[in-house]
């Protein structure tokens, strides 16, 4: 039982595809390291934001004046549900390898993710037009756009990746490399959700409270 006892992060293939599980060992560990490195990047952006949101106002708007909590709440819900939907896509892949159902769940995930990116772009639009708060206005806004923008960029590249994976599922089918790529995308997607927790808490909620 050593295979199923030694679990890597994310959904494991131990029960249904021992060979795939074996191949996953190295690949997923590598990707997990990449995510940790990415997390450090976000941590640095968070720390910069924390300082800039105080020091970098420079006579421009303050956090509480430009943030829309309702939008942030809806964005949180979209991202959370898309993470959940991806989980179900992975279950379909693991237990049934049913292309149609995996693709439908991926579609749900992708639509929710795209809606999230769309809402964020709309937020930016409102901030720039209605609040006169473009990134060039102050250090605080530079840090805000860089932090949320880096996250949005990650989500967007996740969406592109997802589209490519959908094509691979259709063209190649559930070969081991395709499965492993989907598993890595899942890790990536869930991790972006974790980063977003930081953003909605430390950027939006903290910004409005203080």
């Amino acid at each position: 039982m050593s295979l199923s006892e030694r679990l890597h992060p994310g959904l494991n293939l131990a029960g249904t595809d021992p060979e795939g599980h074996e191949a996953a060992e190295e690949v997923l560990f590598g990707f997990w390291i990449f995510l940790m490195s990415d997390l450090v990047l976000f941590a640095v952006l968070f720390a910069t934001y924390a300082a800039m949101s105080v020091q970098g106002i420079a006579g421009g708007p303050r956090p509480a004046e430009v943030f829309d909590l309702t939008a942030a709440f809806l964005e949180t819900m979209l991202l959370l549900l898309s993470s959940f939907a991806f989980g179900f896509a992975m279950l379909e892949m693991k237990y049934r390898e049913n292309r149609r159902r995996v693709l439908s769940w991926l579609l749900v995930t992708g639509v929710l993710g795209a809606a999230f990116v769309g809402m964020e772009l709309h937020d930016y639009y409102v901030m720039i037009t209605a609040h006169a708060a473009p990134p060039q206005a102050s250090g605080f806004l530079s840090a805000y756009y860089l932090l949320t923008g880096t996250h949005a960029l990650h989500v967007s590249s996740g969406l592109v990746w997802m589209a490519i994976m959908a094509v691979q599922v259709m063209v190649i089918g559930f070969s081991t490399p395709v499965k492993l790529r989907l598993m890595r995308l899942a890790l990536f997607w869930h991790m972006l959700d974790v980063v977003w927790i930081g953003i909605f808490t430390f950027v939006y909620l903290f910004g409005v409270v203080s």
Binding site: A50, F202, F206, G207
Partner: peptide, 22 residues
């Protein structure tokens, strides 16, 4: 270079963690 520092600093608080001495 720092108009805000000179006129109206003090309202702002460190976003995280809470700054006790602000």
């Amino acid at each position: 270079f720092a108009p805000a520092m000179v006129q109206g600093h003090g309202q702002a608080g460190m976003a995280a963690p809470p700054a006790p001495h602000q």
